[in-house]
Amino acid sequence: MVLLLAVEGGYRLGVYRLRRSDQEYGPHVLALATATMGLLALILAFTFGLAATRFEARKQAVVDEANAIETTYLRAGLLPGDRGHKVRDMLREYVELRLDAVRLGNVEQALRRSEELHRELWKEAEAAARDQPSSTAVALFIESLNRAIELHATRVKVAVRGGIPGVLWAALFVIAVLNLAAVGYHAGLVRTRRSPTVATLVMGLSIVLMLIADLDHPQDGALRVSQQAMFDLRRTMGTMGD
């Protein structure tokens, strides 16, 4: 709607200027509008590329984290006593938290509980290291647990805290509005009737902007990062048991 209003406002301003002054030169205005369109295309390409890169990074983060959790789960079976059973229970809860955060949208709550589980898991790792300081199995478990915690931090940074900066969104929107206003202004100057092609331009630009927004917020729109790796991990945990 805002983009259509920009075109209409530019058109009316162009008609007004044509009535008031004969100094406006249509081809010159067209050249400026074309240059503005090129600038808009450049920013659109940059923003789309940034959003697509982040989307792919989010997909890869899910796979990497699932692999790290599975490795930690497997190595927990090497821990002495009932410590491995306790660790595996916490890892199952952790995976359920990850899936519930996506399904229910309770991201902040899930993050707080995830950090609590990290602390509890690390306490178990420390206790195991104290009990068996020279154990290779304990060292392998600590290595995989550390990797899982690191990937959690990476995923939060990329998937939850990351995103296209608001300044870039504002610049993109302002340039789009100015560009369409320039298109309408030129049409008003040359007394061109309102063409349906303008509507297609507005619709096409709107679709691209919505696509970029979907890529930037993959759990809120039509494009979603698949959590299949986490579902597979939950099923694998269920079949492994303790």
Results as ranks from 00 to 15, higher is better:
Arg155Ala: 10
Leu178Asn: 09
Met230Gly: 03
Ile149Ala: 12
Ala170Arg: 09
Met210Asp: 12
Thr197Trp: 09
Gln227Ala: 05
Leu178Lys: 07
Thr197Gly: 08
Leu168Ala: 12
Ser226Glu: 11
Ile212Gly: 00
Gly221Met: 11
Leu205Thr: 05
Val156Ile: 06
Ser226Thr: 14
Leu215Gly: 00
Leu172His: 12
His186Leu: 13
Gln219Val: 08
Val202Ile: 06
Gly166Glu: 07
Ile175Glu: 05
Asn179Ile: 00
Ser195Phe: 07
Val167Gly: 14
Val225Phe: 02
Lys157Ser: 15
Phe231Gln: 10
Ala176Asp: 03
Tyr185Ser: 01
Pro196Lys: 06
Ala159Lys: 00
Asp216Pro: 03
Leu180Gln: 08
Gly162Ile: 06
Val156Leu: 02
Leu223His: 06
Ile212Tyr: 00
Ala187Gly: 14
Ala222Tyr: 13
Ser226Pro: 09
Asn179Gln: 08
Val156Asn: 04
Arg193Leu: 12
Phe231Glu: 15
Gly163Ala: 08
Gly188Phe: 04
Ala181His: 02
Gln228Val: 14
Gln228Ile: 10
Ala182Asn: 02
Val177Tyr: 04
Arg224Gln: 14
Val167Gln: 15
Gly184Pro: 04
Thr197Pro: 01
Val183Ser: 05
Ala171Pro: 07
Met203Ile: 13
Ala213Tyr: 04
His217Asp: 09
Leu223Trp: 13
Thr154Ile: 11
Ala176Glu: 06
Ala170Leu: 15
Ile175Ala: 11
Ala159Asn: 10
Leu211Ala: 11
Arg155Tyr: 04
Leu205Ser: 04
Leu178Tyr: 10
Val202Arg: 00
Asp220Met: 07
Met203Cys: 09
Asp214Val: 01
Pro165Asn: 07
Ala181Arg: 00
His186Ile: 01
Arg155Met: 10
Gln227Asn: 10
Val158Asp: 04
His217Asn: 10
Ala222Lys: 14
Ile207Ala: 15
Val160Pro: 02
Ile212Cys: 00
Val208Asp: 04
Lys157Val: 12
Asp216Val: 08
Lys157Asn: 12
Val190Asp: 07
Met210Glu: 13
Arg155Phe: 05
Val190Ile: 11
Arg161Leu: 15
Leu189Cys: 08
Leu233Met: 07
Arg193Trp: 12
Thr154Leu: 13
Arg194Leu: 15
Ile212Ser: 01
Gly184Asn: 04
Asp232Ser: 11
Gly162Tyr: 09
Leu209Ser: 01
Leu172Gly: 03
Ala181Lys: 00
Leu233Trp: 05
